[in-house]
Design a protein around this nucleic acid. Structure first.
Lengths: 344, 344
DNA sequence: TTGTATGCGTTATCAC
DNA sequence: GTGATAACGCATACAA
């Protein structure tokens, strides 16, 4: 059995010929209109499809009806475990509904984001999930005008009308500060990446400051730094905080998983004892139980977030759901207390 | 400025009309044949494209020439940081060459793998990168016969002719055992996930046994377990190893990053002191420096692996490269020594 | 240098 | 029930 070189895929026409029927009938068979065909024809078509190992060409299908069966997803940082967890849930949900996911990583670069958005449009994706890196409002508006539903993931864009799904950021900060207070900490350093262009970062930062003003038992500071590896600036900042003159005991609150990682590295380098100095991070990471006495975290319900995202999208795809006003879906964080917030 | 509902995207025909030229000329303009057009026409077309915000429809484009500009990637476990790192590199490389990446996660499920492979075929992807979960030989053969280049990532499939890229597994095991020997360990437990269907796991396991037979100073055991969370079986196995009667000092060698994580959790629960008992893991993870005295690892060059993968694919896409015999590209691991292999 | 005509594989609109 | 046939948006052989 010699394999023919470049045996081009069979088409609906070949199936029709093989079965001795018309293209139309085959198309109907595939398009969920079997009930309109005679049993005899159904079986003949089924046989032909099997024999030729026929697979419909999604390109052609998309060209004709505008139904690409594709959902596009823009991820700001594919190496972020939180993003991947949500991505995973989204992919499953899409798949369950007959959609495939075209994933684009923007590496937090607005330029790449713009390019990728254009790309997704050119593939006529039927919906877009975007974990925005910049403010691609123009592109998104173009998509929206074209009738493509958009869901904003984790980060909102206030100048674009779209559903949004994410964490209850204010609630998370409240939960974090409540826990730290419970555990007896009195002075908190909030460490974040620069909040520009990431609404969730802004919201968390804002809420932190707000709560500080409201809760007299608590004082604190904030610092925003880019989080590369071997971060001297971060180490320096932490060092100053640790040796500063504020109230004690002190604690550090990390705005997201990436920050938690870098802060943990820096504290490690500084020889800080976790617990004595509190440490709490937003985002659960699979190693948090392993670092020192374990790092206390606020887990985001990634599965629920992913499911809600796709649910929103699918609703907008229904003829009835198109017009509804934008809706924001928020989920509460879940506290996972570990040794890093247990004072000796 | 009221936004028109569902303002359908403009087509090449509208651009042509707007510019007062023929479709063909516009098509040429976009297809990299501008040099064949008069300057006047070029500018008119450019203007029209801008004004209409025209974007070529990739679906139609792919339909005509079979050039979907899509590369499909099947990843066995999207939540594995190693896979994501390689995925990241592959995406960048594809993008640099004008291709987009259609990513499918199979969750190590051969059924999902088969489905996704069919899906990729239906989108007429021009190449496939597969980090195989099962033995989808039939599907891959169909793709290959159809002329679609395939690259096997990390895991080989011996009954399918395709390029392969991955780690030098034997070399990595040698390096690991050499390091453990250097550091004075004498008895090694090799922990792996079940190797069935993952060639790299098989190769590493085999080599471990082989080296043990060759090196008289070293004795050891192997165990293969599925790596879920809260793994009682694993904890039990490790406990027995630690309290067993073999030579000392003892060390544990983890077959991949996932194993390292679970073993670290189990050792943590058992209260084992790292270093006194050696621990070395294949795959570098970003928290390895943080667990106890730091975990020694063998890093895979994920960037190089990703680049080589795409390079292979692109070579096969050239008319000249189609016929070349399958080629295997292997990269050496890099040792990152930390406290977990430093005896007190 | 530019334009015309045809076809890619599919679905939808008609007729029969 | 079933089958021609016309789009869908684009690239390309061919003609001018």
């Amino acid at each position: 059995m010699s394999s023919l070189p470049a045996a081009s895929r069979s088409t609906i026409l070949e199936v029709a010929r093989d079965a001795g029927v018309s293209k139309t009938s085959v198309s109907r068979y595939l398009g969920g209109e079997r009930h309109r065909l005679s049993i005899a024809m159904q079986t003949r078509i089924a046989t032909a499809i099997q024999r030729l190992d026929y697979r419909p060409n999604q390109m052609a299908r998309g060209l004709k009806g505008g139904r690409s069966k594709l959902v596009g997803m823009l991820v700001a940082d594919i190496r972020n475990p939180f993003s991947v967890a949500v991505l995973h849930a989204i992919e499953q949900a899409c798949r369950a509904r007959g959609f495939s996911l075209l994933v684009c990583n923007t590496d937090n670069d607005p330029d790449q984001e713009r390019d990728h958005l254009a790309l997704l449009a050119s593939y006529r994706v039927e919906g877009v999930v975007i974990n925005a890196a910049g403010r691609p409002s123009a592109q998104l508006k173009a998509l929206a005008d074209q009738g493509t539903p958009i869901v904003l993931l984790d980060r909102s864009l206030n100048d674009v009308e779209a559903d949004a799904v994410g964490l209850d950021n204010a609630g998370a900060i409240d939960m974090a500060l409540g826990h730290l207070l419970d555990r007896g900490y009195r002075h908190v350093l909030y460490v974040s990446e620069p909040p520009e262009g990431a609404s969730s970062r802004q919201l968390r930062l804002e809420r932190f400051r707000q709560r500080l003003a409201q809760v007299p038992e608590l004082t604190g500071e904030t610092t925003c730094l880019p989080m590369q590896r071997d971060n001297d600036a971060l180490r320096q900042t932490l060092h100053e905080f640790m040796s500063g003159g504020g109230p004690v005991p002190r604690a550090i609150l990390c705005a997201n998983g990436n920050v938690t990682l870098q802060v943990a590295h820096a504290l490690n380098a500084l020889g800080v004892t976790l617990g004595e100095t509190g440490l709490l991070g937003i985002d659960e990471l699979d190693w948090c139980a392993l670092a020192g006495p374990g790092i206390t975290t606020l887990a985001q319900p990634t599965e629920a977030i992913g499911q809600a995202t796709v649910a929103s999208l699918m609703q907008r795809l229904e003829p009835t759901g198109r017009q509804a006003p934008p809706r924001r879906t928020e989920y509460a964080a879940r506290l996972i207390a570990r040794g890093s917030t247990r004072r000796p």
